[in-house]
Nucleic acid binder design. Sequence first.
DNA 1: TCTCGGAAACTCGTATACGAAATTCGAAAT
DNA 2: ATTTCGAATTTCGTATACGAGTTTCCGAGA
Lengths: 215, 215
Amino acid sequence: MEAIAPAKSLVEKTYDALLDAICAGEFRPGERLGQDEVAERLNVSRQPVNSAIAMLKAQRFVIDTGRRGVIVAPVDRQLFESIYQVRSAIEPLAVELATPRISPEAIKRGREIVARGTRLMQSNDPSGVLQADIDFHTLIYELSGNAIIVDTMRLNWQHLRRSMGEVLRFPGMTFQVWKEHRAIFNAMVSGDAADAAAKMRSHITEAPRRVVREA
Amino acid sequence: MEAIAPAKSLVEKTYDALLDAICAGEFRPGERLGQDEVAERLNVSRQPVNSAIAMLKAQRFVIDTGRRGVIVAPVDRQLFESIYQVRSAIEPLAVELATPRISPEAIKRGREIVARGTRLMQSNDPSGVLQADIDFHTLIYELSGNAIIVDTMRLNWQHLRRSMGEVLRFPGMTFQVWKEHRAIFNAMVSGDAADAAAKMRSHITEAPRRVVREA
DNA sequence: TCTCGGAAACTCGTATACGAAATTCGAAAT
DNA sequence: ATTTCGAATTTCGTATACGAGTTTCCGAGA
């Protein structure tokens, strides 16, 4: 029952590869992204690379220097804070919308994610925990039935991956967070949307305080 | 004191032209968008058109048919509702953030927009009123100092333009709305962020009820 | 040694070319 | 008249080519 593979174009593959490389920190902030260089690395012509970079530019992952191509955008504390401000408003909404739409399969999947996150916490696997964090929140976005939330937050999480890659300790990297995830999800399962949303609100509001703060 | 013109590339110009044409309803939903056709119409080669369409695809303004190019996305009531759900969360936040950052020039500009919107209401100019509506909310996004809000809502308003182009009466097309705008802005000017945010919340929550509802 | 000028090399944006997939259209068969 | 099969046409995705603007580099002059 796999959704049919849409046969990605080279532009899409290039975009995905670049975005992932940037967010995983394989390209350093400020580093120049040459089209020839990327094209050779991915074994495509410059044409798909040019298109992909245009999209990354519109999404603030790279910056146009005006003269010779683009550079990887610096990791911006302002952007990080902007995203958390937005999350403080969007996440509780997503929970409200998702709670009455939760399904047995979703419950199963949610519990699996919480268990996985908690387990990876114990085995001290930062990137695994981050992925579980993303998965947990993305599950809620998808359950919300709101396509705008899904799309918007997908991009925002990519930005967050960058910020969190810089510091080893990130908001999801504590036991407290996974206790909160569990509590939020339990409230959702029990159908108490208001309680779940309130728990989510404080979850997000407290999260940035847990990050090491630096200019 | 004009910001220097960034010398837009053909890709950007093509993207802007296509987006505006789609949102203004010049291309009908479901209509095929041929690259050659667009290229000729804008006097550019297919290359910038291809890039621009790739971006529009990622932003849901056009849909890939898989076989021969793309079609203009149908105006989707679900999308409209999703955006209003998001706005119900984002707009009050934007007001909270913007209120303590308001400047004398911003006050001047805000009053000008409200006056213009009210005036165009009276002269029965729907597209002018819509533009004033967009301007009013965009001013608040910009004052919020939150780049994510600015970027996200710019795209969302383009989607809304499409929805509202379908129905002659849209949420901004009533006197009540402009009375509310004025009240919100006055609360912001007086520095009462909580009151302004509350007023904005009900402004957004009530708005969709004012639109003619149709499948 | 340091500065300056200009030529060579690089890199990007855009145009054009090419191959593959899909659609269209017409002719032959029923 | 209708259906079917395949060749011609259309159109896209991607590669390659080209022109313009920048940067780099090196040698001449101070």
